[in-house]
Nucleic acid binder design. Structure first.
Lengths: 212, 212
DNA sequence: CTTTTTATTGTCCCATTGGTCAATAGTTGA
DNA sequence: TCAACTATTGACCAATGGGACAATAAAAAG
């Protein structure tokens, strides 16, 4: 049995007792440090301190720094994703589904500068961390899929695809704005902004054609 | 005279001889390192190596690491900004001005993953670096102003304001997408995306009103 | 040709960091 | 109770980082 639990994919339920609890604490501690210090200032010692433990324990539960932050990224994304899913469950019409995704992405308790700062730091590492890149791709794929589940009933497949890209970009951009200039964009503004975008895109049947 | 040139704002033309040349080289070296290594891996030694000089010289021209990267940020922004300005000069009608800003922000030789990576790393430090935050505010203010110079002729002041925010966010979001998933968005797609957004917003007179 | 600045290098220093390891305390199961 | 395993700590280490500095080369000024 000893060599088993080294591989967490076996009997995940039971193992949630101690090991998984610590891991979660540490992931969250890592994220908290990231919020305050950014990736450059995020050290194992600070994470340990944040979790009220010793540095040794961090490397007991995570092979190395990189892995720790990869897991922090996964967790953070899971939280945001959950918010969207919850709203999506109550949505029925295509338009309701769109709104669920949009509003879920600006959940008041999540759409906050510190969270954005941490997220930004993580994103900045994506190009040098293949695992993070993969997480990132998954995130984007799911977001797209969520959007398309609504958009398919509202536009042609080609348009839906295009609008989905626009919506994700717009959402990301509004988050970025929040991170770079806290207070420059409120949740309500953000939501309205994206909804207006969708409304505008749906109102125009043929995309702009120009000769530039 | 000795104590004068310590303050570069005096006789800037002449001093461009040596001191300013080195400074520019170092700023660019810093940016190059940032592209490859991210903020966490960007060390003075690497910057020096990139510039083909010794670490000492870097701190001879910049008080410290922070200052160096602040200047790198300024420079990078200046380049992007210049691209927009150049196009803006040839624009006459409001719509041409809009297109100038949009296309300028996706200049083919600038809209590239490495540049985006470096930029992202810099942005991730903004929350902890007041000077970078200020640069960031300036950048955004200018972008806004550029957009409004075109939008004022196309929409009501309130709408123009709102659309300007949306355009900046959308542009940032598309850049982010490029950084996180290189190849997932082409320059043409990006430009079209933003133009469609503007077209959509201009087509709808009254903004969406909902009771969510 | 001196003298004064400026440019540049390499060395040194100290704090910090990620990571290893052995030792200890605690748990669990038979 | 005993043995096996897990959790947790603190000490330790080699590497690295930012930055200070003195020494030297190179220019400029006079």
């Amino acid at each position: 049995m000893s060599m088993w639990n080294r591989n967490a994919w076996i009997d995940p339920v039971k193992l949630k007792r101690l090991s998984e609890i610590r891991r979660k604490e540490l992931r969250q501690a890592a994220f908290a440090v990231l919020e305050r210090e950014g990736i450059a200032g995020a050290t194992l010692e600070k994470v340990a301190a944040q979790a009220g433990a010793s540095k040794g324990i961090v490397l007991h539960y995570f092979r190395n720094k990189q892995e720790l932050f990869e897991h922090a990224m996964r967790e953070a994304n899971a939280v945001l994703c959950q918010a969207v899913i919850a709203r999506l469950r109550r949505a029925i019409t295509p338009m309701e589904r769109m709104d669920a995704v949009i509003e879920g992405n600006f959940e008041p308790h999540l759409f906050q500068p510190p969270l954005c700062h941490a997220w930004l730091s993580l994103c900045a590492e994506v190009p040098r961390d293949e695992k993070m890149a993969r997480i990132q791709r998954v995130i984007h794929a799911r977001m797209r899929s969520n959007l398309l589940s609504g958009l398919r009933g509202l536009a042609s497949p080609a348009d839906a695809d295009d609008i989905a890209l626009g919506v994700t970009a717009l959402i990301d951009g509004l988050w970025l704005r929040l991170g770079l200039q806290p207070g420059s964009v409120s949740r309500e503004q953000a939501v309205r902004q994206v909804k207006n975008y969708v409304a505008g895109r749906l109102a125009i049947r043929e995309p702009v054609i120009d000769g530039a």
